[in-house]
Amino acid sequence: MKKNLGILAVIAVVFIVTAIGGDGFLSAFNLYNLVERISLYAIIGIGVSFVIVTGGIDLSIGSFIGLCAVTFPFLVIGHNVSLTTGLLLLLTMSVCAGLFHGLLVTKLDLQPFVVTLCTLMMYRGVARHLVSDSTMGYSDERFQPLSLMVGRLSELPWFEGQAWARHVPVALLIMIVIGVLAAVFLNRTIYGRDLMALGRNREAAHLSGINTTKMIILAYVLCSVTSGFGALLFALDVVSVQPSTFGSFYELYAIAAAVLGGCSLRGGEGSIFGVILGAALMRLLMNSIQMLGVSDALEEFVIGFVILLGVIIDVIVKRVVAKRRARQQATVAAGAE
């Protein structure tokens, strides 16, 4: 919690500045959309943080999202597969992708960067080829039951007729549920502890009797399954899906959210709440840039710059703390003599 105070402060500052300087930022419409976007990005950020905790990386998330988003209507509309079967196939596909990544990383000891860089390109190619590069739509009424997931909370039976629920996206609820499950997994189960330990020192974890191979594979599977589910949400939200671009760079947003939230790419460090805040800051910045009338062209620059700044400040703070600590230890040691 203490670690997240910095990013919370930055979010507060950006929020206040935009609220004062930006027209329409505080409108119900804008805030609703902002919260929904934050929720979707936080979900894939949570997914990739499992892999990052092990010291790995998954660069294929964006194109895997593209592949899933294309495949689902391809099955349901194109081949008249039932919604349930379609969902099961999507889940199977996600599990297989994760297994594929995890097995290559552990059994063949390939670098995660290389493995997922290759699958990034492969998934995109498959997605485009599968539907001959044609746009896929989610407006068909067969998708109606699923569309609830990107609707308003008031559309759900439990919240029917409650005024406030009309301003809350269902995606936020989904994100919170996933976040709580992920946090419990990471902090309260032996598996989460395994991941944290092996992310810091794989050999020591292995020699302590932890099945590191199995756990790393599990992390990649969790990441792919989360991306597959995220793909569905993103696709239902925007309704039309271009095979060649849908999901592009999402992996970078997910990774950036995780890093902003305190995950170290060296592994072993990360909190789910932090990742959610990271996603929130990133989407908030994008929104602010629009609201404050900053040139769209500068959007990527600003986000990249802010993330870099955050990481630099984090490193400097850590160094100062470590130095102060070393000095204290030295004086203690000197005093003991």
């Binding site: 502890r193 330990a197 810091r200 020591a204």
Partner: peptide
């Protein structure tokens, strides 16, 4: 490199073998 996980607490290190 093989014995302790330096960044983790004494308690966590001691508990590592007995997790299961």
């Amino acid at each position: 490199k093989q014995g302790v996980i330096l960044e983790l607490a004494v308690r966590t290190n001691i508990g590592l073998a007995g997790l299961r």
